[in-house]
Nucleic acid binder design. Sequence first.
RNA 1: GGCACCAUAGCUCAGCUGGUUAGAGCGCAGGACUCAUAAGCCUGAGGUCGGUGGUUCGAGCCCACCUGGUGCUACCA
Length: 481
Amino acid sequence: MKYYVTTSIPYVNGEPHLGHAMEFLMADVLARAARKRGDETLFSTGTDEHGGKIAEKAAELKMTPQALADQMSQKFRDLVTALNVRPDRFIRTTDKGHEQRAQLIWKAISKDVYKNKYVGWYCTGDEEFFTETVVKENNGVCPDHNRPYEKIEEENYFFRLSKYNRQILEAIESDALLIIPETRKNEILSLLRSGLEDISISRPKDKIDWGIPVPGDKTQVMYVWLEALLNYITVLGYPENENFKKFWPADVQVVGKGIIRFHAAIWPGILLSLGLPLQKALYVHGYITIDNKKMSKSLGNVVSPAEIIDKYGADAFRYYFLRHIPSYGDGDFSWPAFEVSYNNELANELGNAVQRTLAMIQKYQNGLIGDMPDAQHDSSGYYEALQEYRFDRALDEVWEQVRGLNQYIDIEKPWAIAKTGDEDHLREVLAYQAGCLLEIADLLEPFMPDTSAKIQAIFNEGIVRPLETTLFPKFETSSKE
RNA sequence: GGCACCAUAGCUCAGCUGGUUAGAGCGCAGGACUCAUAAGCCUGAGGUCGGUGGUUCGAGCCCACCUGGUGCUACCA
């Protein structure tokens, strides 16, 4: 079996934030889980780098757009590395290969492309046109970017999205293109039922120069959103590369709730025009708030992922965002909540379970573990949760086992057995504990790869091998203003 | 305006096609223990399941309306 998973590619107009981090993590878990079960796996992510906004910002900073894109793309790459996220591909839309292949795609969909005049209100911040109503509601100023909408009249190429409306609708209704969670599916269905309009897919080059040229028309560049979507197949080497033939269609594409329209309507439209199968699934995650407030620079509540990782480590970061941000909804980050979770669940429950088991085996048996039983627990709930992209519940299942182990230890009281001198029984109990920890480590592998490897290293060899450092050292809870 | 969703212990949430005393985690209180990162384990207190009316032998789960909140989407002028 092959498995292809993608994230959306972040636009490089801002610093990487917690939302980007979480999306990387979710795709990483899916990819690691797929590799673990033996699938030939390709996990792709990257950065989206063209468009007027980048050009504008580069000009402000007196940089070339390319230099700005280089610098920003690297920050996302650094975040990926810091999170211990391991994509097989990191595509940049300024990669030559992407640009060339995007142009091939343009030609391939040309039967569905026509030129027309477009008049509308445009926000450079969103790279998007808005309806008259929206503009009026916001008194002519885009609320997300705090800048006035511009009235633009221009010649654009249009894509006949309307032509594929029915096919897209049917694919989603039938779950041929599975959208998860269901509320997101319903949203997109109502959009599709109300009818899709053709969309503008180019911009005049004299307005926006920083983009991929439209083949055969020197006056136009591709609309950045269109071209960014194409990364999902250009990264595979569309149309001729073996990887493309092997890995497309994607098994799942991970995106945030703000961009489902692009991924559940426009992108499928392009694929249909190309005569390609649609992605099999679209998993839509929510947004993260900080202290229950939308994160924003003006509120000054931005928490950088690096700040958390530096202090607590990648696995603790992965753990919190995968377990405590609801997989099917929005979630919240706060330092106190993070620290409580870290100290109680990682240090006390898991870390200490490892420590007490390790210590007793050393103390009572000179480190010799004895025969460990094979995995004893029913982990079907964990696998079902993973199957449904419920990362939070999958980790709940693992923690059921962690708690179960601590209970077992308190019921059996190996320290009391040690006093009776019943060595066989003691060895049996301690080996069972170690076996449980290996089982837990196995389940944790996609979520917390380092922790998993450390636990395995301790108990894997029949004789315990203690770590040099504590698994999850406790921290004083700091209250940050 | 339309469509959809949500409102359950102090907090975050589970509750499948309606069926005995409504659950978990956190937080809080108490207890027994000592292998361990003063960790872990046990017990307990806490809910008229947003409101009103209805269907039913029986509703947190169904229906109507109301209140409050969220998402998607639209339009007259």
